[in-house]
Structures are given as structure tokens and as C-alpha cells.
Design a protein around this nucleic acid. Structure first.
Length: 381
RNA sequence: GCAGGGGUUCCCGAGUGGCCAAAGGGGGCGGGCUGUAAACCCGCUGGCUCAGCCUUCGGAGGUUCGAAUCCUCCCCCCUGCACCA
């Protein structure tokens, strides 16, 4: 395994020559990566550093996934990150288990160690915390980009937030990391790990950051934003979402997700995207599922036909059916939403748009009703 | 503790007594177009028994024919100052 493969898509590999030196040790390296257990789904974005971990594993090294259970349980009291909920122990355990299971579509679980940072953080007493805080200065922490920005903007920064990078850094001490992986957003935290390891008399870890995957909305892909493709997500969803990325993101996705050495064919973005979508589904669910998802996409999205499998539902009693109520029931809409859909021509019965709110029973019985682009139901009764 | 600023519909953010279910943007949804869920154009975007009615603008009261807008009390957030035990 070449260094080039280990560092594919890397933005920073620090310090220079550090990785070569670690590899020269001739023993399996411990390659650390932190995971966010507040969001249980592993996304294609998580997949980018995980793919690096997988490369290290193929070269005989050990992946170490750190579950920030302690950090999560304490929560972020600043109120700034309200998006980060405080979870119970059971939820964290379940999410961690789920993360590892999902990540196994990419990494090798047999060569992966999963550690919970409560294991060591819970044991730190105050004196030890003070020792940890001496490893780094306020100026160093405030150098970090988002802190610097917030300071300039006179936005609040709580002391506990300043401590977060230190906790993560201490994880590296505890597991004796040789390498730590992360997105470019993690650069500062990973470097803090080096400082702290050194303060604890350890050989500092090598820091390896990879490019951040940009999603269809132009923002970084993250579970909390909801702009993600999950590695365990339904094949049709994965396929469709992949087709949803803007054409000009294709080359990044080819590079980061496919790990392709070639650019996608610029003259045929559709074909390029289909290739990408197929590949993503194949990695998660296999080639058969990918073929089926592509068929589904062709049929439903490109040709605008009903899918092969349409869920069935019973019509309510009565000779005259009130459509808004029926749609609201079937597709979990408010009746106002259902009315809007109808008035906008988004509701079709056997392919024909409807504009009446009440329909005789026999117009609906046995018919396929479509609400919007992708919601279908067939009524019986 | 003191002074000042602020809490608005999914998000950001206008709105200082009626023309406000509340500008604008984002997101989402729908339609058109396109053999992409891309791009582009148009529309919609609180709820309901929907030409009308009901509930929203941190919370509770109050003034008024009428309040997101004014008053009172309360809760929460931010900034500065003070306290430096």
C-alpha cells in the first residue's frame, strides 16, 4: 500500500514526513477518528475519512473509533450548539453500535477498536484537568477559525467550549493514537491533540485531514443539516439523492466518493451522475439493488410513471370521497397541504390531474393516486 | 448588581397601533421545461368542516373599537461596567 493511497484526498498531512516516520516503525499504527453519536446515521460525508481508515486497515493498521459519550452526556451548555442534544447512556450506546454497523460498509470491523471516551474522561479529577489545560494557551485555542470569527463578531464563547478541543486531544493520549483522521474542519482539534500528547510525553500523532464533501445544497454534508445520503439508506433514496447533486459538484464527488483518478465526462453529466449513483448504491446494497434502483429512477423520475410496487390503502366508507382528507391521511399531510397540492395540479389519478375536492367512490377504487412527484398509493375497496 | 441590546411563522431576518397569517432571503413543496431528484422559469409555503372561520410574533396580565407593535410583571439570551470575596 502506497503512501499516496493512504493520503488520497488529504488536505493536510502534518507534520511533513511524519507519516513516513510512523510507517517506518514497522508496527500496526493506531489510526484514530472521532465519531458523532448524536446523529446515528453514517453519511457519505463521514465516509470520506472512513475510506482513509479503510485504506490504513488494508495496509495492516488498526482503526480506533472514539465515541464521545462523555462529551455528549455532558452536553454543550453554551446554548450555541442547541442542535446538539444531550443523550442518555442507552441512546449513546445504541447510536454507537449503529454507527459501527453502518460504518462497516466502508471499514473493516475486525480491524477496528471502538472506545468510549467516558472510559478515561470520567476518571479525570480536577487536578488532572488543570494539568491538561496547562498543555495549551488561550491564545492558541482562540486562534481557531470559528472562535476567532465569533470573537470578532462579539459572539459568546463559553469556557466549556474552549475545553472541548482539549477533551478530544486527551482522547488521543488515552488511546495512544499514531494518526488521527478528520475533515478539514477538524484541523485545529487534531493539532491540539499533538500539543497535548507531547505534554504527556507521548510521540505526537500524525494529523491527516481530508476534503469536506459538499452536498446538493452547497453546504458540507452533515447529519444535523439533513442534507445527507446515508450509507444504510434505502437504495431508491440513495440513487435519487445522488442524482440530485448539482452537476458542478460531480468532479468533487468523483474524486472523494468514487476515489476516481479521472474526471467525470464533462459532456455527459447525466451519464456521470448515473455512474456515481450506481456506485453508491452498489457499495451499500450490492449490484442488484443498484440496478433495481436505477430502474426505479428511470421509471418514476425520468418517465414519470408509477413505480412497480405501489402501496395499497383502503378507501373510507361513503359514495363521495373528500380528497383532501384522504390525501392527508395517506401521505401524512395537513388537509391544507393536500388542498394546495390539488390546486397546483400535483395530484393525479391514474395519470390525470384532478381539480375537484370530492370524487365519487368509483373514480378512486382501484386507481393509482399520485401526490406530487414521488408519492403513490393504490386504493382498494 | 447596574446600564444597554435582544427573544417574530422550519431557519435567517423585516415589521413600532388597523392595509399582518406578518416584507425579503434560505430551505421545502408543486407546476413547466429538460430523456438528471442538475440548471432554468413560474407558483405555493400556520391550521380548519376553506369565497369563511380559528390559532400564531418568549410567558402572564392590561390599555384600546382594534396589539407582533403601547403599558405592567415575569422568564430566557447577549454586550459592557461593577463586584475581585
Amino acid at each position: 500500500m502506497s503512501i499516496a493511497e493512504l493520503t488520497r484526498n488529504a488536505v493536510h498531512v502534518l507534520p511533513h514526513g511524519g507519516l513516513e516516520a510512523k510507517l517506518a516503525l514497522g508496527r500496526p499504527l493506531r489510526v484514530k477518528m472521532g465519531i458523532d453519536v448524536t446523529a446515528p446515521d453514517v453519511t457519505l460525508g463521514n465516509g470520506i475519512p472512513l475510506q482513509r481508515m479503510a485504506a490504513f486497515q488494508r495496509a495492516g493498521h488498526i482503526g480506533v473509533l472514539i465515541v464521545g459519550d462523555y462529551t455528549t452526556r455532558i452536553g454543550d451548555p453554551s446554548g450555541r450548539s442547541a442542535a446538539r442534544p444531550i443523550l442518555s447512556g442507552e441512546e449513546i450506546d445504541a447510536n454507537a453500535k449503529r454507527f459501527v454497523e453502518q460504518a462497516s460498509t466502508i471499514i473493516d470491523p475486525k480491524r477496528t477498536e471502538v472506545r468510549f471516551n467516558g472510559e478515561w474522561l470520567a476518571k479525570l479529577d480536577f487536578a488532572e484537568v488543570l494539568r491538561l489545560t496547562r498543555a495549551i494557551t488561550v491564545a492558541q485555542i482562540l486562534e481557531r477559525d470559528d472562535f476567532a470569527k465569533r470573537q470578532r463578531a462579539r459572539e459568546p464563547i463559553s469556557v466549556s467550549e474552549l475545553l472541548y478541543p482539549l477533551m478530544q486531544a486527551y482522547d488521543s493520549v488515552a488511546v495512544q493514537a499514531d494518526v488521527e483522521l478528520g475533515g478539514t474542519d477538524q484541523l485545529y482539534n487534531l493539532l491540539a491533540g499533538r500539543e497535548v500528547m507531547e505534554a504527556y510525553g507521548l510521540e505526537p500523532q500524525v494529523v491527516l485531514t481530508v476534503e469536506y464533501l459538499v452536498s446538493w445544497d452547497g453546504a458540507g454534508m452533515s447529519a444535523s443539516r439533513g442534507n445527507y445520503i446515508g450509507v444504510r439508506e434505502d437504495p431508491d433514496e440513495q440513487f435519487g439523492k445522488a442524482m440530485r447533486i448539482p452537476d458542478d459538484l460531480l468532479s468533487q464527488w468523483y474524486r472523494l466518493v468514487l476515489e476516481s483518478n479521472d474526471d467525470p465526462p464533462a459532456e455527459d453529466p447525466l451519464a456521470a451522475k448515473l455512474t456515481l449513483a450506481r456506485w453508491i448504491v452498489t457499495r451499500s446494497h450490492g449490484a442488484d439493488a443498484a440496478a433495481a434502483a436505477e430502474q426505479h429512477f428511470t421509471r418514476v423520475v425520468r418517465k414519470g410513471q408509477a413505480p412497480e410496487e405501489v402501496p395499497e390503502a383502503m378507501l373510507p366508507p361513503g359514495d363521495l370521497i373528500h380528497l383532501p382528507a384522504l390525501l392527508a391521511e395517506c401521505f401524512q399531510l395537513s388537509t391544507s397541504e393536500a388542498r394546495r397540492l390539488i390546486s397546483q395540479g400535483g395530484v393525479k389519478i391514474d395519470g390525470d390531474a384532478v381539480d375537484e375536492l370530492d370524487l365519487p367512490r368509483d373514480a378512486l377504487a382501484g386507481a393509482i393516486v399520485q401526490a406530487g412527484k414521488r408519492r403513490f398509493v393504490r386504493f382498494s375497496g
